[in-house]
Computed example of a mutant assay.
Amino acid sequence: MAQYPSMQRSGTAKAELVNAFMRGVYGWMSAGLGLTAVIAFLTATTPALQQLVFSFRADGSIGISSLVWILMFAELGIVFYLGARIGTMSASMATGLFLVYSAMNGLTLTPILLMYTAESVAATFVCTAGMFGAMSAYGMITKKDLTSWGSLLFMGLIGIIIAMVVNMFLQSSAMSFAISVIGVIIFLGLTAYDTQKLKTMGENVPLGDATAIRRGSILGALTLYLDFINLFLMLLRLMGSRR
């Protein structure tokens, strides 16, 4: 009985540490999403910026500029670089790279968002936020170990990427619909899985090590940011009303 108060305090301290860590994760994720939204809005409403993401051809047709493709490959590089080097880079560099990635994503998402009405984009965002919040909350509070979900979700993710590449040539509406539905399921699962994984990370983060906490928060923010954006895009394909 004499040991119980000490154990209780230890458990309380761990819970407070996890909560503080997850607040950092959600805070930076929200900052990234906010920056993406601002850049996308400015690009969509500013003719000078539209010149950066659209290619206006002589025949009057409009395509995606080469800059967008360059930025997409650069974004992929940033994601892999952050994932591989997060443990050795400074906290300020990790934060800067995440914010640069978020800003670049605002540019590359603009051509997609302009394909849909503003009302349907807003409605899809609200729906995404609700579904993401519910699954992230599940990942935080569930006592079930979601580790086994990881390999299954990863295989599903690879599968829909391959299917999307194939459908670029087939242009099948039925296949596009199936990809979107399966994609929603996969990214909802990843949201819960990644949230639980980050909760575990928060339990083991070095107490008092501000650099390690910031690095972990940025990596976690990037992870959940990617889950949110991809869930949003999959839902937009299902719910969005084209212009």
Rank of each mutant, 00 (worst) to 15 (best):
Y4T: 12
P5Q: 10
S6Y: 11
M7E: 14
S10P: 00
T12E: 15
T12F: 07
A13Y: 09
A15T: 11
E16V: 13
L17M: 13
N19R: 14
A20Y: 08
F21Y: 15
G24S: 06
W28Y: 15
A31K: 02
L35R: 08
A44P: 02
T45G: 00
P47M: 11
A48M: 08
L49A: 13
L52W: 06
V53E: 01
V53L: 02
S55A: 10
F56E: 04
D59W: 08
S61K: 09
I62R: 15
G63M: 08
I64Y: 03
S65M: 09
L67R: 08
V68I: 14
W69H: 13
I70T: 14
I70A: 15
E75L: 13
L76K: 04
F80T: 09
Y81V: 03
L82C: 08
G83P: 08
A84I: 11
R85W: 08
I86P: 02
T88E: 15
T88Y: 10
S90M: 07
S90Y: 04
A94G: 12
T95M: 10
G96I: 06
L97P: 07
L99N: 07
V100C: 06
N105W: 00
G106T: 06
L107A: 13
T108Q: 09
L109P: 00
T110F: 04
L114D: 10
Y116C: 12
T117R: 05
A118L: 14
E119H: 12
G133Y: 02
M135G: 00
A137Q: 07
Y138S: 02
G139L: 04
K144A: 14
D145T: 13
L146A: 09
T147Q: 08
S148L: 12
W149K: 02
G150E: 11
S151L: 13
S151N: 09
F154Y: 13
F154G: 06
F154C: 07
G156F: 08
L157G: 09
G159N: 08
I162H: 01
V165Y: 10
V165T: 11
V166G: 00
N167K: 08
N167A: 07
N167W: 03
Q171D: 13
S172I: 01
A174R: 10
A174Y: 09
A174N: 15
F177K: 09
A178R: 04
I179R: 05
V181K: 05
V184T: 03
L188M: 15
L190I: 10
L190N: 03
T191H: 09
A192Q: 05
Y193F: 14
L198N: 01
M201N: 10
E203S: 15
V205G: 03
L207Q: 13
G208L: 09
D209S: 05
T211A: 14
A212R: 12
R215D: 00
G216W: 05
S217P: 00
S217K: 06
L219I: 02
L222V: 12
T223Y: 04
L224E: 01
F228H: 01
F228P: 03
F232V: 01
L233A: 05
M234P: 00
L236D: 00
R237I: 07
M239T: 05
M239K: 03
G240F: 01
S241L: 08
R242I: 11
